[in-house]
Simulated assay, not measured.
Amino acid sequence: MSELDPIDRSILRLLAADASLSLNDIAEKVGLTATPCWKRIKRMEEAGIIKGRVAVLDADKLGLPVSVFVSVETSDHSASWLGKFHEAVQNTPEIVGAWRMSGDVDYLLHVVVPDIAAYDSFYRKLIEMVPLRNVSSRFAMERMKEGALPI
């Protein structure tokens, strides 16, 4: 896809802030009519820039107030192990984010659970699914910022 112009970036900022905006609202805010605005959005979807549109949910109000950042180290970097780990990450709903890292930690997981007992259950399940060398958990005390990409 060619470089994003200022109108594309404005559309992306609007969608990132509120994906429920109507096409007409977005078009009006960026100074276009609906059809060219729709074409830009469609082009960015097809290019994979817009991967989807989601609702941002309140974890506390849904009974999932505990956020844990889990550092995972492994001594096995084989394709077989990676396949098992990838499957475990994809099939574990408590894991809401996962990254392969550089440095002394191999993977970083963002886990949400209702309480410490549920985290303990998650942890036991994780270490049964794949062999791990070291797991370190850090419990979030306060969410200070959550937002859109700086477009």
Rank of each mutant, 00 (worst) to 15 (best):
M141I: 15
V135S: 04
G103F: 01
L149S: 11
S10Q: 15
I127T: 15
G63A: 08
I26E: 05
I151C: 04
M101R: 08
G147K: 01
N91C: 06
M1C: 06
E94Y: 06
E28K: 14
F69H: 12
A118C: 05
E87G: 11
I127S: 06
R40M: 06
S121N: 11
A34S: 11
V30I: 05
I11Q: 02
S121A: 15
L109F: 09
A17P: 05
A19E: 07
L132I: 07
D8I: 04
T92H: 02
L82H: 09
V130Y: 00
G147W: 01
D120F: 00
D115P: 02
G97R: 08
L4T: 06
A117C: 00
V30F: 00
I95W: 07
I26V: 15
S10R: 14
Q90T: 13
L32M: 10
N134F: 05
E128F: 03
F139P: 04
V89Y: 07
S136M: 09
D8A: 07
D76L: 08
L64M: 14
P131K: 12
V113G: 01
A27S: 08
N91T: 15
R138C: 09
S20K: 10
L21K: 11
V111S: 02
D8L: 03
W81P: 02
H77K: 14
